[in-house]
Design a protein around this nucleic acid. Sequence first.
DNA 1: CAGTGGTCTAGACCACCGA
DNA 2: CGGTGGTCTAGACCACTGG
Lengths: 235, 235
Amino acid sequence: MAAAKPAYGQVKDWVRQHIARGDWRPGDPVPSEAALMERFGVSRMTAHRALRELAAEGLVTRTQGSGTRVAQLHRISSQLVIRDIHEEMAERGHEHGTRVLKVAQEKAGAELAGSLRLRKGAPVFHTVLVHLENAVPILYEDRYVNPAAAPAYLDTDFTRTSPTSHLLEHAPLTEASYTIEACLPSADEARALGIRVSEPCLVMMRRTVSGAHVASVARQLYPGSRYSFSGQFAA
Amino acid sequence: MAAAKPAYGQVKDWVRQHIARGDWRPGDPVPSEAALMERFGVSRMTAHRALRELAAEGLVTRTQGSGTRVAQLHRISSQLVIRDIHEEMAERGHEHGTRVLKVAQEKAGAELAGSLRLRKGAPVFHTVLVHLENAVPILYEDRYVNPAAAPAYLDTDFTRTSPTSHLLEHAPLTEASYTIEACLPSADEARALGIRVSEPCLVMMRRTVSGAHVASVARQLYPGSRYSFSGQFAA
DNA sequence: CAGTGGTCTAGACCACCGA
DNA sequence: CGGTGGTCTAGACCACTGG
């Protein structure tokens, strides 16, 4: 037997199907809560919850006083999940290794100070690591950390704990932004990753905020031949 | 005056703040629905809704019989929104142009037939376009379309309607998956984009499903120097 | 077993939209 | 004005977890 679906779930599925099959096209009205109460013999709260969740998923739009309509599906939106690299490899059953290239305290230059919202010349933590998956270099990570957000950062044993783990542990995440680009590695980066300087890489720049502090800015370089981001989306 | 926040929103904010400030750390218990009823003088449905939505946002995890806990924020998840390129440019106030390189019906090879869930040799629609932003080539799009999902695809005037628009209009989207990689362009692609063959590109491979059909598989190439994906996330 | 979350109801009041 | 959605309550029954 199928696991008994809750009533609001049945309503959601019913609406979803009509949209997916094209019975109701973008802009068309969806049955009102009152109509769904009759149609399914449920209370208004239940019908309301079904439509509210569909709205949260972006499948319909609701306007108070006017009604519910099928959303213009002019975008494919999908969860891009950025996870801790260690965990990601563990899930694939692969072994994770780290090569530590730099662990140091430095003075922030003008640009970096701006990114971290610090004064120019303020001390910052700087680490450069290469992450290995089954002994193959897969990620070059150049990271600056705000000492105020994670005072003990430099004491971390980065062969055992990833910077991401340490930061999530000590500086609860409240905000993050990222950019993904394609670029060629510098000579140093190529050497550290064991690739040619002509091999294209994905580069992710990330900035994380924890409470009142910018916690960290990082530049992560993935060799194009060894890594890709992927995701999916289902209505 | 601040717009009066609904009760469930106040509860959510209160919990969110305690998590963001680190008062409650990942794994710590969050007050139960009963406790929140007392604390805020709300009904259980209201307290429940607050916690349910926080769970949907990934900030807490709930286990029936056990309780609610602060989620392990071991992942930064963010909405990667894939939009129609035309619309994206319109929003930036830029002009969109299209160069049509190929519009044809072909026979599917073995690999393509597999992707589209068709028999080998079945007819498929094939288009190759270059999208221009303010007259600069920004995207090379090589796309195969399942005729069953969009019979009129080849009749589209691609200088006015993007493939994405046509497909969303005629083949309601039910599912999609994508992969983002870095690679170098082929000689043809480089020529069409007006870049050197040594310039790294972001490539997005996308497969969309509409009801019973695989609607389309597409390969989109963005010059690394002219385009990047970006996004943000806020708890 | 007590405490938890998961679901559901039958009402209610309000704000808003469109005719 | 009637119909819509947005919110909220005070109950209820159930399934599950943990001691």
